[in-house]
């Protein structure tokens, strides 16, 4: 009869924990997906669609649901990829496309015909204009997503590099001769490795 107590104890425990879990799932229920929110908070919100999803939020939902890899956000760059990989608990993967220098869209106003197609395309509502009036872009709010280029029937939108502002300037990483030398050696080493493979 020695087995009765352990069985009773574990059955009791299982019941108690089961009730606890049931109550917790009821009273601590969270609406929405907190993981997707976390991923969304890391994304740069350019809404560019380069990941194949129509905006940052849908991509965040897909990443949180393990439907897609973490390395599809090109504007976010390596830093964003690493941060997402960290919270998703997956291995970091290299980003295939190179991120370009920060750009903003600019409309050549004298060529604009006022068709409003770009206004409809802008995901962050930063183009102002009216039918048959020049349109212009509020460059402070432009995320550089390039979504307005395609609908423009007269190709009057350019992507221009943002000028380096004095107040946004920051010190570059200290480049010492030793670091440069080491980088060269590393490159050489990698090249040799590739040859031998």
């Amino acid at each position: 009869m020695a087995f009765v107590y352990p069985v009773l104890v574990f059955a009791g425990l299982a019941f108690a924990i089961g009730v606890g879990l049931a109550l917790a799932s009821r009273y601590f229920h969270v609406e929405g997906d907190p993981l997707a929110d976390k991923v969304d908070a890391l994304l740069p919100q350019t809404q560019c669609g380069q990941c194949g999803y129509p905006g940052c939020r849908p991509y965040a939902n897909a990443v949180a649901g393990h439907e897609v890899a973490v390395n599809h956000c090109v504007p976010g760059g390596e830093r964003t990829m690493l941060a997402i990989a960290d919270i998703m608990g997956v291995e970091p993967q290299a980003i295939e496309e190179e991120a370009t220098a920060p750009v903003v869209a600019h409309i050549r106003e004298d060529e604009c015909i006022g068709c409003t197609l770009c206004i409809k395309a802008c995901p962050v509502d930063c183009i102002i204009g009216a039918p048959k009036q020049y349109h212009t872009i509020i460059s402070d709010h432009c995320t550089g997503c390039t979504l307005c280029l395609e609908p423009c029937p007269v190709d009057c939108i350019d992507m221009v590099e943002t000028p380096e502002l004095l107040e946004h300037w920051s010190w570059p990483v200290p480049g010492t001769k030793r670091a440069i030398k080491a980088e060269k050696r590393k490159g050489k080493h990698d090249a040799q490795g590739e040859l031998s493979v």
């Binding site: 740069p44 919100q45 962050v124 946004h168 920051s170 010190w171």
Partner: peptide
């Protein structure tokens, strides 16, 4: 290195603020 780090932190904060603003604009849209 500290100046570099401080500059990067400031830049990350700026980017975060911009992303937040873009997110709000996009959600409103």
């Amino acid at each position: 290195y500290f100046r570099y780090g401080k500059g990067q932190v400031a830049q990350i904060q700026r980017e975060k603020a911009f992303a937040e603003e873009s997110r709000i604009r996009s959600e409103k849209r």
